[in-house]
Each structure stands twice: as structure tokens, then as C-alpha cells.
Amino acid sequence: MEKFTTLRSNAIPLNIENVDTDQIIPARFLKATDKKGFGDNVFRDWRFHKDGSVNSDFVLNDATYSGSILVAGDNFGCGSSREHAAWAIVGYGFKVVVSSFFADIFKGNALNNGLLPVQVSESFLSDLFSEIASNPQTEIEVNLEDQVISVVGKSIAETFEIDAYKKTCLINGYDDIDYLINNKELIEAFEAQRTY
């Protein structure tokens, strides 16, 4: 996994609530047996019309906006457990998703793939949306070490929460498998004394 410390980037605003994993990556793209290529199909049915033509109304197709931060409406990532959703977002080039609320499984999947979900207050989120709307070049900084997200050059900032263990993993680029395997003895001891 790639290490994550601080990121400064423009952002793409996706001002829609309850964005579910079927929208992030529709089921018909789940037939692959590796993790590659999902980025091409992220938000597929919003980016393209059914006849394959580009939907120029959709924000990812709007050249005004760019960057590796996705700012999304409340309850992002609800729906299925498909990690393909995280792979698709990472594959497209995002490193951070900001929302006022994330679905549990999506959040875990994101963290396991070096994608940082930054949960902010509703008022901060609406500030972000209006900043980006008034200036698409708005830069946002996400500092994982200090757990602060801010609008560069403005006094708009907020701290965010992250599990201390997950933070260490992201900063150092390791994952849960490494940790669990190093605890195999404990696990075997647990198995031996199990009573239920």
C-alpha cells in the first residue's frame, strides 16, 4: 500500500447524497478477477449515456474541475460490500473522499486501499461545496498527521477523526494482513482454549 501523509489538490464536487456502490461501479463490471481497470468504469452510468455517448452534465466530465480529492454528499458509499468501489475510485486517481457521512463497509474498504475517507461536519461540507463552486481552482489540503482538512489560503479548516491504528497503517503503508500474521501465536492459543 502507498504511504499517505499530506495531500494538496483541487477537488471535484459530487453534490449528491446517498451515492451507493452500484453507482460507483455497476455490477456488470464486477466480473474481473484482478483489481486493475476499475477506474475506467467508475460512475459509469452517470458519466456515459446508455448509447455510450458522454454525459457532459456529469461533473467528472466537466473540465472545469480536476484533482485527486472527491467531495461528495452525505452517506457516501452505501450499499454493497464490493471493494471494487474503492478500487474504482483509487483507479480513477482519487486519494481522498470527503463527505459528511460514510457507509461502514465502504470506509473500511477505502482505508484498506490507501484511500482516505475524511468525514467532516455538514456545515464544513457545504462550505467546501460553495468554495469549489465559486472557484473551481480552490485547493484543499488534507494533513493526515495532524488530522486537519483545510481550504488553502482561507481560514476554513476542520479536524477529522481517524482510528489511531488505521492512521499508523496509512502513514507507514502497511496493512492488516501484516499485523494479523504477526499475531498467529495468539490466534492459535485462542483456538485451543475456545469453549463455545
Binding site: 460490500s81 471493494e83 463497509i105 494479523l180
Partner: peptide, 20 residues
């Protein structure tokens, strides 16, 4: 409960998950 594919790999490797 449902898990993502990284967690499937964790359970494969250790029969355990790291959870709050």
C-alpha cells in the same frame, strides 16, 4: 456481517479480522 475483499484476504490469512 459483510466484508470487503481485503478483509476476505485477512480471514484467509489468519481466520481473524481487525475490528472496532
Amino acid at each position: 456481517f459483510g466484508i470487503g475483499t481485503s478483509q476476505v484476504a485477512q480471514v484467509f490469512a489468519s481466520q481473524c479480522l481487525l475490528l472496532k
